[in-house]
């Protein structure tokens, strides 16, 4: 601070002196004072350059990187939402399958008890219980499709993580080379491209929510005959 004050004072003094010498007709005095003024101006310029925190181009880059990083929560929100969907669907399937097995086991026990207690059982008497044993099977088989659905959801998560990888590489390049800024794909563009991979209604809803859109696309009926 003191150096700055001294430099400004020196600049003013030498400039003023140069003007005074010039007015009084002393060429050598004016030249000397003008030289001093130039030296003071050069010192001031050098100090000014040193004092600037960073060049404007780098500041712009850092702001752009910060803007991109600020969008990550939308991305991680989508990841979490997909994780929740997977947990919910596997939980539902596991519950249906476990309940079916429990009911089948209970009905097998009843069937065994009937056979043990009665010497002569008619087939018609057993049939309702036998049917009850097999009843949960179809529902359980239907629930097995959860594996197919979750497999696709997990594959989607893997593709999302690749987008993050690519974006981090781009950010690193951008920080290392200021000319790369123009080449870098915007994170939002990459994230929007991920929407193309969202084939399920639930995925598209999660994506819209993650980017802050209150948008519900019509998905059509679960069964449609043409």
């Amino acid at each position: 601070m003191l150096i700055r004050i001294v430099t400004v004072a020196l600049l003013l003094a030498t400039t003023s002196a140069a003007a005074t010498f010039a007015a009084s007709g002393s060429a050598s005095g004016a030249a000397l004072a003008a030289t001093g003024s130039l030296v003071a101006a050069a010192i001031g310029y050098a100090l000014g350059r040193k004092d600037r925190s960073m060049p404007a181009a780098i500041r712009t880059q850092m702001i752009k990187v910060a803007d991109d990083l600020a969008q990550y929560p939308a991305f991680t929100r989508l990841l979490r939402a997909q994780g929740t969907r997977i947990t919910e669907s596997t939980c539902e399937a596991a519950t249906v399958i476990a309940t079916g097995l429990r009911d089948m086991d209970a009905n097998v026990d009843r069937l065994r008890a009937m056979i043990d207690c009665s010497a002569h059982i008619e087939a018609d008497e057993l049939r309702p219980l036998v049917d009850a044993v097999g009843a949960p099977v179809i529902g359980m088989l239907g629930q097995l499709q959860f594996q197919d659905v979750t497999q696709q959801q997990i594959a989607f998560l893997a593709r999302l993580s690749l987008i993050v990888d690519q974006h981090m590489i781009n950010l690193a390049r951008q920080l290392g080379n200021r000319r790369s800024m123009d080449r870098m794909t915007n994170f939002k563009d990459m994230f929007d491209k991920a929407l193309d991979d969202c084939v399920m209604t639930s995925q598209r809803e999660d994506h819209h929510t993650a980017v802050g859109l209150d948008l519900h696309e019509p998905s059509g009926p679960k069964i449609e005959m043409y």
Binding site: G142, Q143, Q145, F146, D148, V149, V199, M200, T201, R204, E217, P218, S219, G220, K222, I223, E224, M225, Y226
Partner: peptide, 22 residues
């Protein structure tokens, strides 16, 4: 897949119907 665009594509390819998994 549940997007209408894909359904339309399937219809155009002469599919008979569409069911959403599971």
């Amino acid at each position: 897949e549940s997007q209408q665009a894909k359904r339309d594509e399937a219809r155009a390819a002469k599919a008979t119907g569409w069911l959403v998994k599971p």
